[in-house]
Amino acid sequence: MYTAEINRRRPACLLLLVDQSFSMSEQWGTGPSKADALALSVNRLLGNAVIQCSKGDNRVLDYFEIGVIGYGGEVQFALHGTDAGRPLLPISQVADNPRRIDEVMRKEADGAGGIIQVPMAVPVWVDATANGPTPMVGALGLAEQVLSGWCSQHANSFPPIVINLTDGVSTDGDPRPVAERVRSVRTDDGPALMFNVHLSSSSFGEVLLPNSAGALPDDYASLLFEMSSELPVQMAEAAAGLGYAVQPGARGFLYNAQATSVIEFLDIGTRPITPSGRRELLPGPAQTT
């Protein structure tokens, strides 16, 4: 399982579920709100994905399709350009269709020992939102529908990757049954991978990629652990390469995650669909793969 080659004939699928409930308006540590920080992380992931799929002649190769489901005041497709009729977009269309381009200031060395502020253009595909309850069951149910349709059309592809990012308890029921159905959606290469990232400002320390629920502080943390898939070999190796103490059976779950850990995990969780170094990305004539 989880060995299918990813190319334009057999793209991969990445679906992010983003908590947009009112509690996401809370400050995350000493930084901005959880909603703002999470939107920044998601947009950074999308921007990096565009770069990784880019060829030197300005083409973006469609190694995967991506979607974002936001859940708060309503369950909605949150990636700009998606809707109920088209819940996923090829990465080339993501590249061509940001919601807007923001200008942010970045610190850089001035070459004389000082630091200067330099403007940088940043594409935005997903806006920060914080409103309403936490309808996680509804979001997972929509994810199941999207992935079932995708897998029926991509039976030979790498299984879908689902990453749920949340700070709260589901307000519309127990999410475990529908999470199990999401994990049961499959291609010929295996069942979908579902990972969960819990954001919190509590004093309890981070729990990163555990292989059991024993170190978790409460029933809710154990519930999210139960909903999470075990890391495939290539993801476990990627996590170990970043310094994580990965034990056999480690699951794709972060509890009380801090911003740096979330950014790193988004990289780990999408490692199989990162096409850097593939033949098609080398300079040369257009490929047909």
Rank of each mutant, 00 (worst) to 15 (best):
T187Y: 00
T187V: 07
D189A: 05
D189P: 00
G190T: 12
P191W: 04
P191E: 10
P191S: 13
A192K: 00
L193W: 03
L193C: 03
L193I: 15
M194K: 00
F195S: 10
N196D: 10
N196H: 03
N196Q: 05
V197L: 06
V197E: 06
V197A: 09
H198D: 15
H198G: 15
F204P: 04
F204C: 08
G205T: 15
G205E: 14
E206K: 03
V207E: 08
V207F: 02
V207C: 06
V207G: 07
L208R: 05
L208I: 14
N211A: 13
N211R: 05
S212V: 10
A213H: 06
A215R: 08
L216P: 02
P217G: 11
P217Y: 06
P217K: 01
D218T: 09
D219N: 06
D219H: 02
Y220L: 13
Y220Q: 13
Y220H: 14
A221S: 12
F225V: 10
E226Q: 08
M227Y: 04
S229R: 00
S229Y: 00
S229N: 05
L231S: 08
L231C: 05
V233N: 08
Q234W: 03
Q234L: 10
Q234K: 00
Q234V: 15
M235G: 09
M235N: 09
A236Y: 06
E237T: 14
E237M: 09
E237H: 01
A238P: 05
A240P: 02
G241Q: 05
L242Q: 10
G243S: 07
G243R: 01
G243T: 13
Y244Q: 11
A245V: 15
V246D: 07
Q247W: 03
Q247E: 15
Q247S: 13
P248C: 04
P248K: 00
G249W: 05
R251G: 13
R251C: 10
F253V: 10
F253C: 09
F253K: 00
Y255G: 08
Y255E: 11
N256H: 07
N256E: 12
A257G: 12
A257D: 12
